[in-house]
């Protein structure tokens, strides 16, 4: 669950985001649709606590992200928010298992190996525990990135352009995985994309252009 009220964000004099109200129920699936430069990545980063808005209040999973700061914010993010980026950003020096262990380690949670097996099994990746990222296909890497994002059973699962540059079949597959993982972990899912192919999979869609909500 998250709620944004009267959020404005500016870079210098330019306002890149202006959202009077944006809310998602716990466990719901939310699409944020917009072209590049529309402000959707900024919105996603604000939701993730990676960036503070110039104005307004941001409440995610019961916490006020604007007032949280420093280590407390990092810690909150690690425990409650899972993020999947378009580029997976897996750590090339670590095996799949160690990449997944980074999530509980950096969030100061117990490093449970059975949780790794559990998550990888639901993604059909349990045979690749010892593999390094460069030994995996693009699709397999994406699954590992999703697995890492849900390792800590986050309240909110965010994805930035997860289907860009994928063909229709793969895009659909990734979307299915995201939705099923969000459901399995009880997470609120928010996907930011410019990819109109996936609009139908979401019950809620926010369309933004130049940082302002427009009707779909």
């Amino acid at each position: 669950m998250f709620t944004l009220s009267n959020v404005k964000h500016r870079y210098g004099a330019e306002t890149v985001l202006d959202l009077p109200h944006f809310h998602a129920e716990q466990g719901s699936h939310q699409l944020i649709l917009g072209d590049s430069g529309s402000g959707k990545t900024t919105l996603l980063h604000i939701l993730a606590g990676l960036r503070k808005p110039t104005e307004g209040s941001v409440s995610v999973a019961g916490a006020d992200l604007v007032s949280l700061g420093g280590n407390a914010l990092d810690r909150f993010r690690g425990r409650n928010i899972g993020i999947v980026f378009q580029r997976m950003h897996l750590l090339a020096t670590l095996t799949v298992e160690d990449n997944l262990l980074m999530a509980p380690y950096l969030a100061d949670l117990p490093q449970a190996k059975d949780r790794i097996r559990e998550v990888l099994a639901t993604l059909d990746m349990d045979h690749k525990v010892r593999a390094y990222p460069h030994e995996l296909s693009q699709g397999q890497r994406q699954r590992v990135a999703i697995a890492r994002a849900v390792m800590n059973k986050p309240k909110v699962l965010l994805a930035d352009e997860p289907t860009a540059s994928l063909d229709d079949i793969r895009a659909e597959k990734v979307l299915e995985l995201l939705i099923s993982q969000a459901n399995a972990n009880g997470s609120t899912l928010a996907v930011a994309t410019h990819d109109r192919r996936i609009v139908d999979s979401f019950e809620n869609t926010l369309v933004i252009e130049s940082g302002v909500e427009v009707s779909a």
Partner: peptide, 16 residues
């Protein structure tokens, strides 16, 4: 840089 940024999104503090 990306690895470090990714670690931050996973909850790592600056000090870490």
């Amino acid at each position: 840089r990306y690895d470090l940024a990714m670690m931050r999104t996973l909850g790592a503090s600056r000090i870490k």
